[in-house]
């Protein structure tokens, strides 16, 4: 029996009989996703927004910092899309496309975290305009959906369409978040640092 060392999306063969595929493997990610999204929203709603936070050196405003970080995350999200198509064989790709997918995703996520922390800590969950309302809601949704995606990755033998579907949701959410924040910021204030 040969085991492909690059078969990252599967677990080791001896295990599958151990846990029968129950509803838990869908239920747990779904519940965690809901809990994460709701917790972020409730925190953003109840926490008294400070309006301020520490700023990175070299940038004119926290808005600029966040826009660039968010744009970085969005760039890596596009890498995610391309590398996912490679992993699924829809695009010709190198053998390390799975690694590329994993690490670009990690970077995108870790770059997005400071932006979200600033949003929730300094600005809070707001609904005073359509743009802001969608941004707040999608921001919470994104981290919930991302948590679900990460937890789903740990299950084996998922329906073939599930991971691409959840991944697509995460990517769509991030795109809309970026459009309602960084893209809006650059259009309103110019592409500044």
């Amino acid at each position: 029996m040969t085991v492909d060392p690059n078969a990252a999306t599967q677990s080791f063969p001896p295990e599958p009989a151990r846990r029968a595929p129950g509803p838990a493997r869908y239920l747990v990610p779904a519940l965690v996703a809901g809990a994460v999204a709701v917790a972020l929203g409730v925190y953003g709603r109840t926490h008294d927004p400070s309006g301020i936070a520490f700023n990175l050196a070299g940038f004119s405003s926290t808005g600029a910092v966040k826009s660039w970080l968010a744009s970085t995350a969005f760039f890596f999200a596009l890498v995610q899309l391309v590398s996912a198509l490679m992993v699924y064989g829809r695009l010709p790709g190198p053998r390390w496309s799975a690694t590329l997918h994993r690490w670009s995703g990690r970077i995108a996520f870790l770059v997005a975290v400071p932006v979200a922390v600033h949003c929730l800590y300094a600005l809070g969950y707001q609904t005073y305009s359509t743009r802001v309302m969608w941004h707040s809601a999608l921001g919470c949704f994104f981290f919930g959906a991302f948590s679900a995606k990460m937890l789903l990755l740990r299950s084996e033998r998922l329906p073939a369409a599930l991971l691409p579907l959840v991944g697509g949701l995460v990517l769509t959410a991030l795109t809309l978040i970026w459009l309602t924040s960084a893209f809006w910021f650059f259009r309103t204030f110019g592409v500044t640092t």
């Binding site: 995606k149 937890l151 990755l153 740990r154």
Partner: peptide
Amino acid sequence: KRPGPLLT
């Protein structure tokens, strides 16, 4: 199983 996603 696969700690990567959890570590992320």
